[in-house]
Each structure stands twice: as structure tokens, then as C-alpha cells.
């Protein structure tokens, strides 16, 4: 194996890349490739931090079953409705947790359920509108007993 020798420029590039990823995910970093998973599902378009409200308990004593609720501000008409809501974890072994498909027949863009969290983290909800626009929100939960020991 050839030893890896980095010059000053490469080191600086690496350091700035690290800085950039730390900026994008301030809490624990993208150890599980969550941002890549979000791009794989929704593309490279801008995702505005608006319209989506994600609620999870600030303290989860049991990471095996954490309730969440996501509601998107939308009139849910033929012309303007939510088509998809996806829930992502930045720390679980698989970033994508669940995807919900809605239509004008939903009447209300609100879903809730229960998820597993492998430790304290931010949970992210991304919503796609019928015009293709994307919105997101995140919420943090302190998890006392993690759902997954292997990370």
C-alpha cells in the first residue's frame, strides 16, 4: 500500500470540506449519509425551511418507539397539495424511516406514527408539493435508551 502524503493545499481542502459538513449538520454530522439519501429521493433542488411542522418529544426514554407528528401548511386542493412527506434520521443505520404519499383526497396534510431512534439526534421531515417545491423541518430528541446498539 502506498503511503498517503497530503500537501498543504489538500489538507486545507479537506479541512474546509469537514467544516462544510459540520455546518450542514450541526449536531452529530452526517455519519449515515442522510443528506445523500434526501438528494436521492428529492433531487438537488433547494429545500426551504418553512411550511412543515415536525413534533417529537424532547426526551425519549425509549428509542424503540418515539411518537412523531408532521403537519404541512397546504390547502390540499387539486392545484396545490402535498404529494409526499418523508421522515429521515441523521443517526440511524438507514437514514430513510418512512415515506407517506398524499393527494387532494387527503384533505389535510398531517400524519403521525412511531419510529425508532438509534440515539439522541435531529429527525428531519421533508415535504414535496404538487408544484415540485420542497420544504423541510427538523426536531431534536434526547434518547435515553437507543433503539440500536450497532451503529
Amino acid at each position: 500500500m502506498t503511503p498517503v502524503v497530503l500537501n498543504r493545499r489538500q489538507l486545507l481542502l479537506g479541512a474546509s470540506a469537514l467544516g462544510a459538513s459540520a455546518y450542514a449538520l450541526p449536531v452529530f454530522g452526517a455519519g449515515n449519509g442522510m443528506e445523500a439519501a434526501i438528494k436521492a429521493m428529492f433531487g438537488n433542488g433547494d429545500i426551504a425551511e418553512a411550511k412543515v411542522k415536525l413534533t417529537i418529544p424532547a426526551l425519549s426514554e425509549n428509542g424503540f418507539s418515539v411518537p412523531f407528528e408532521v403537519e404541512v401548511d397546504s390547502p390540499m386542493t387539486e392545484d396545490n397539495h402535498v404529494t409526499k412527506i418523508a421522515i429521515f434520521s441523521e443517526r440511524n443505520p438507514i437514514p430513510l424511516i418512512a415515506t407517506y404519499h398524499l393527494s387532494p383526497r387527503s384533505g389535510r396534510a398531517k400524519v403521525n406514527g412511531r419510529i425508532r431512534l438509534a440515539g439522541t439526534q435531529n429527525v428531519h421531515a421533508i415535504a414535496q408539493m404538487s408544484d415540485g417545491s420542497l420544504y423541510r423541518a427538523s426536531a431534536n430528541s434526547f434518547v435515553t435508551v437507543a433503539a440500536c446498539i450497532i451503529l
Binding site: 424503540f64 418507539s65 430513510l96 418512512a98 398524499l102 398531517k110 400524519v111 406514527g113 419510529i115 425508532r116
Partner: peptide, 13 residues
């Protein structure tokens, strides 16, 4: 996906 809890429950409209 595997991140959904056992005995899944969901509410929708």
C-alpha cells in the same frame, strides 16, 4: 423501512 417501530401505528386524513 426498519426505522419504523414494532406494532406500527399511523394516523392520516
Amino acid at each position: 423501512h426498519p426505522g419504523v417501530s414494532a406494532n406500527p401505528i399511523l394516523t392520516f386524513y
